[in-house]
Amino acid sequence: MTFVDDLNQAHRELLDGTRKTVTLRRHYDAEVDDVWQACTDGDRLSRWFLPVSGDLKLGGKYQLEGNAGGEILRCEPPSLLRVSWLYGPDPGFSEVEVRLSAKDGGTLFELIHTAEVPPEFWSQFGPGAVGVGWDLSLLGLGLHLRGGEKPDDADFIHTEEGRDFVFASARAWGEVYEAAGATPEQAAAIVAANTAFYTSEEGEGS
C-alpha cells in the first residue's frame, strides 16, 4: 500500500460555520488500548507526532515542540481525549478531540478540530491548512501502530512520494470544501495555496 492509498483510508468532513470544524475518521488495525497509549503517552507521541512536555493528565498543561500547546480538558481512557489547541500570540478558540472505539477487530479513530479562524486566512487556505497537517500526522500514527517509523516531515514532503501525498491531501480537502458550499474556483484556489505552502511548489500533483 502506498502512502496515498493510506491517505484514502480516511473520511473527511467540514462544518463551515462561525467556528470551523474539520473531522477525520479512519480505521486502524490495532487494539483501542494500543491506539490510546500511542495518543497519550509522551514517549510514544514523540515517535509518530512531536515531542511533548508538561503534565499529561486531566487539567494539566502540555506543549508540543514547535507547535501547539494548551490544557487537557477531558480525558476518559481509552475512548475520549479533548485538549485546547493554542498556537501563536493570539490564537483564539481552538480545541482538538480524539475519540476511539472498537470496530471490526481494530479501532475507529476520530479526530475533530474546531477553531475560530480569521476570515482572510480561511479564504486563502480553507480546511486544508490544518487538514494536510493532520493527514500527515495520521500517516505517522498508522506507521507507528504497524511497527514502522514516521518519516521526517521536512524531508518527506520533498520526496516524490511525499509530494504525491501532499497533493492528494490538498485535493481531498478541496473536495470537502466544495461539498460544504465553496465554489469550484474557491476549492481550486485553496488546493493550490495548500500544496504551495506545504511543498513550496506550484503544481497539480500526479
Rank of each mutant, 00 (worst) to 15 (best):
G17E: 15
R19I: 03
R19T: 11
K20T: 06
T23S: 12
T23D: 07
T23E: 12
T23W: 06
L24H: 11
R25Q: 15
R26P: 01
R26N: 09
Y28F: 15
Y28G: 00
Y28R: 01
Y28E: 09
A30E: 03
A30R: 01
D33A: 13
D33F: 00
D34Y: 00
V35L: 06
W36S: 07
C39V: 05
T40Q: 05
T40G: 06
G42M: 10
D43A: 13
D43F: 00
R44Y: 06
L45H: 10
S46V: 01
S46T: 00
S46Q: 08
R47T: 06
R47C: 08
W48H: 09
F49Q: 11
F49Y: 15
L50C: 02
P51H: 02
P51T: 04
P51S: 09
S53Q: 14
S53E: 15
S53N: 10
D55R: 06
D55T: 10
L56N: 07
K57T: 13
K57G: 12
L58M: 07
L58H: 11
L58W: 01
L58C: 02
G59Y: 08
G60V: 03
Q63Y: 00
L64A: 13
L64S: 08
E65M: 11
E65P: 00
A68M: 10
A68E: 13
A68R: 04
G70V: 02
E71W: 00
I72T: 06
I72P: 01
I72Y: 11
R74V: 14
C75S: 12
C75W: 13
E76M: 06
P77W: 11
P78N: 11
L81G: 03
L81Y: 05
L81N: 02
R82H: 03
V83D: 07
S84T: 15
S84I: 10
S84E: 14
W85I: 02
W85G: 04
L86T: 11
L86K: 10
Y87C: 01
G88R: 07
G88K: 05
P89D: 14
D90K: 08
D90F: 00
P91S: 09
P91K: 04
P91A: 09
P91R: 03
F93G: 04
S94R: 03
S94W: 01
E95A: 13
E95H: 11
V96L: 15
E97D: 04
R99L: 08
R99I: 02
L100N: 02
L100M: 05
S101I: 01
A102D: 10
K103Y: 11
K103G: 02
G106C: 08
G106N: 10
G106S: 07
L108W: 10
F109K: 03
F109V: 13
E110K: 06
L111E: 09
L111D: 05
L111F: 14
I112E: 15
I112N: 13
H113V: 02
T114N: 10
A115H: 03
A115M: 14
A115L: 09
E116R: 06
